[in-house]
C-alpha cells in the first residue's frame, strides 16, 4: 500500500467548489451587464475579463501576490478588517482562482444571456414580473445550459491551476497545498507511484464530471433558440 496523503485532494475540491460559488456570484452580474449594456465600456470590460486566458499564470500570479500581500490593494484592506494577510492562505487562493477562472464562467454566461435576449424579459415585465423576478424565473432557466457550462469550466479550470497557486499560495499542507502542487512535489522527490495515483485520480474524476455534465446538458428538455 502506497502511503498517500489525501489532504491535497480534499483541499483542491474545496478550493474549486468555493471558487465556483464565488465566480457565479461575481460572474453573473458581469455577464448580465455585458449581454445587455449599450455602454462603450463594454469592449474594455470584455477584454479585461478575457485577460487570464492569454496571460501566463505566473504574470497573473505575480500581480495577485502583490495585490493580496499585506501592503497590497486587496490584502491591505483585508488586513485592516481581519488583522491577517491574504497571501499564502486558503482565502487568498480562492480570490486568486476567482480572477484566474473568471473568463471561463463569464463567457458562457454572457453567451447564454445574449441568446435569451431582451424579448422574453420584456414579455415577463409586461406580465407584471419585477426585474429580479424575471431574472430568476425567465432568464436563468432559459440560460441553464450556460450555467452548466460555466460551472464545469470554472470548476475544472480551478482544479487544473498550478502557476497561480504556486505564486500566491505557496505550498502549505492543509492550507494551500493543492493536488497539482502535491503531484509536482511527488515527482520532484521521485515518488512516482504517489504521483501516478493522484494524477490518474484527477484525470478520471475530471473525465467523469465532464461526461456527466455533457450528458445532462444533452438531455435537458429546454430548447432555447
Amino acid at each position: 500500500m502506497i502511503d498517500l496523503d489525501l489532504g491535497p485532494l480534499w483541499l483542491t475540491l474545496q478550493l474549486a467548489g468555493a471558487t465556483v460559488i464565488v465566480l457565479l456570484l461575481v460572474g453573473t452580474p458581469i455577464a448580465w451587464w455585458l449581454a445587455f449594456t449599450s455602454s462603450r465600456l463594454r469592449t474594455i470590460v470584455e477584454a479585461i475579463v478575457a485577460l487570464p486566458i492569454v496571460l501566463p499564470p505566473t504574470v497573473l500570479g505575480f500581480y495577485l501576490l502583490i495585490a493580496l500581500g499585506p501592503h497590497g490593494l486587496i490584502g491591505g484592506i483585508w488586513k485592516d478588517f481581519t488583522g491577517s494577510a491574504l497571501s499564502f492562505t486558503f482565502t487568498g487562493l480562492v480570490i486568486a482562482s476567482t480572477f484566474y477562472s473568471l473568463p471561463f464562467v463569464v463567457q458562457p454566461l454572457h453567451g447564454a444571456f445574449e441568446a435569451v435576449g431582451r424579448k422574453p424579459l420584456e414579455a415577463a415585465w409586461a406580465l407584471g414580473a419585477s426585474k429580479l423576478d424575471t431574472f430568476f424565473t425567465v432568464a436563468s432557466p432559459m440560460a441553464i445550459r450556460g450555467y452548466l457550462t460555466a460551472i464545469v469550466l470554472g470548476f475544472a479550470h480551478t482544479l487544473g491551476e498550478f502557476g497561480v497557486v504556486l505564486m500566491v499560495g505557496g505550498n502549505i499542507p492543509g492550507q494551500t497545498k493543492v493536488l497539482s502542487i502535491a503531484i509536482y512535489d511527488h515527482v520532484e522527490t521521485l515518488e512516482y507511484a504517489q504521483a501516478h495515483t493522484l494524477s490518474a485520480g484527477l484525470l478520471i474524476f475530471s473525465f467523469l464530471v465532464l461526461l456527466a455534465v455533457y450528458t445532462a446538458n444533452r438531455r435537458l428538455p429546454l430548447q432555447v433558440t
Binding site: 420584456e122 407584471g128 419585477s130 430548447q223
Partner: peptide, 18 residues
C-alpha cells in the same frame, strides 16, 4: 411597465420555452 395594468402581445408569441 411591471406596475402598469397593461397586457402586451408582441409580433412573435414570446412564450417562455421552459
Amino acid at each position: 411597465l411591471t406596475q402598469r395594468s397593461v397586457g402586451y402581445v408582441f409580433q412573435e408569441p414570446r412564450l417562455f420555452p421552459h
